[in-house]
Structure formats: C-alpha cells, structure tokens
Design a binder for these strands. Structure first.
Length: 259
DNA sequence: ATGGTCGATCGTCGA
C-alpha cells in the first residue's frame, strides 16, 4: 500500500497540478494539507473521478486537511483531541484497510508558529503536546499508525540546506525540535530519514529569492510510523518534480510503501 | 536593511 502526503497550498489553485500528479503516483491513500477551503467548496468530484473516497476537514481561507483513499475510509475523526475550543482545522484521521489488517492514517498540518515570542509559537508548542498525548493513546491500541503531513519542524541541521539561516525561525527552535523528539521517542520511525539518512532531502522551498533553483530547501513534511507500521515499511521517498512544474505548491509530495 | 513570492480574498493576513 502506498501512502502520499502533500501540502498543496490551496486546493483550488492546485487542482490541475494535484490531479496530474495523482494520475501517475498510483497512491492508495493521500493526505492533503492547506486545502484552504471549506468542506462544501472542496472540489471532491475531481478526486472521486480518480477513484478516491474523499474526507475533508476544512475552514474558510486558511489551514484545512483532507484524506483521499482508493480502499475506503472508516471511523473518520476530525480535529486533534485535547482542546475542544480549537477552531483551526489541522487534523483528520481514519482507518483504512491494508491487506488483512487496518491501518490508521492521520493527515496533519502542525502550526507554523512564527513569529517566535508570540501566541502563535505558544499555540504551536501546545498543539505538539496535544499531538504527543493523542499519539500515546493511539500507540497503546497497537493498530499500525501513520502520522503524515506538514509538521513545520526541521528536525536536525541535516534537514536544511542553510541551517544557520533558520536559527530565529519557529521551525528550527530548540523547543520545537525538543517537542519533535519527545513525539518520535514514543517509538515512532521517521520513514524518510530511515530510508534516506543522508543530507539534501528537502520537501519545501520558499517561493521567494529563487530558493528552488538554488536548492535552498528544508525537510518539514514527514511520515511517522508506529512500530507495527514500521515493520511493514518497504520504501519511502520525496517526489521533488512537482516543485519545478506549472503553478507549483511550495511543498512536494512525500510517500511510503507499506507491505 | 530591505524586499523578495504566493493563496485566499478583496485589504490584509498567513506562510
């Protein structure tokens, strides 16, 4: 089973690029972030024509996540538990059949947190604590778990072309990285890191200053696997080609293949 | 030091 995650930065602006990619990616499950659409405005027919069942958790203007599946979606849950008053649409999870078992897949859009020193950064860290708590609950269930999305965290220096340039950014703050480690140390495998431990693996290049042309990228889109999912990991990768296409998102797709 | 680019929306915020 192939699972793809992609921050598409606006589903309406990306409909052509997204459907063109999915026609050749052969993905069973797709996690989208930053759909920037309400549920009623999501162009679900364009994805249903490709064979996908669609579940969205959107809001007006910003954020928004979605799950697409060619093998069905069950037990769809919207919103990260732990703060009922949170109005930001950043989490959707569901169960999908994978062979003889089920896999739980979450599409997540972790808060950016910039600028540091503001309530945006406080919200990011609080959201990461909620993510850790909920993940702890899910891990105890021992169903294979896949957390896929834009984590807005650069885990280590190797994950940036110019790590020193990100020193003042919420994506590379010690607190953000510590929270990432607290999460992964619950027993999660960073799938792309596991398969491609070397430098130069990036998933985001800013629109400004010719960042992509200079390969001035960072790795912030991740797929984390529970032990039961990691046992079935065959390969993981980053598809950077869409970043060089027409009207690209500033992020590119990241994928795993599970046995 | 500043401006540099996008998307959603329609003045301005978020990234």
């Amino acid at each position: 089973m192939k699972i793809v995650t992609w921050n598409i930065n606006g589903v309406k602006a990306r409909l052509e690029a997204a459907t063109a990619y999915l026609r050749q990616a052969d993905a069973d499950v797709v996690c989208l972030q930053e759909i920037k659409s309400v549920d009623e405005g999501f162009p679900r027919e364009a994805f249903e024509e490709l064979g996908y069942t669609v579940a969205t958790h959107g809001q007006k203007g910003f954020n928004g996540v979605a799950l697409l599946s060619k093998v069905g979606l069950e037990d769809v849950t919207r919103g990260l538990p732990g703060e009922d008053a949170d109005p930001q649409a950043r989490w959707i999870e569901a169960l999908v059949p994978a062979g003889a078992t089920m896999v739980r897949v979450a599409s997540i859009y972790l808060p950016n947190g910039n600028p540091i020193g503001t309530d945006k950064f406080t919200y990011k860290l609080a959201w990461m604590r909620r993510l850790e708590a909920h993940t702890r609950t899910r891990l105890a269930e021992e169903t294979p778990l896949v957390l896929a999305g834009d984590f807005n965290v650069i885990p280590d220096r190797v994950d940036a072309k110019r790590p020193d340039a990100w020193g003042g950014d919420a994506l590379f703050q010690p607190e953000s990285r510590q929270a990432w480690r607290a999460l992964t140390h619950l027993g999660l495998t960073d799938a792309v890191r596991a398969c491609h431990p070397g430098p130069g693996v990036y998933t985001f290049w800013d629109y400004q200053a010719g960042a992509f042309q200079k390969d001035d990228g960072i790795r912030i889109d991740h797929i984390l696997l529970s032990p039961q999912a990691a046992d079935r990991l065959v390969e993981a990768g980053v598809d950077r080609a869409p970043r060089g296409g027409e009207k690209p998102s500033d992020h590119v797709p990241v994928w795993i293949e599970l046995a």
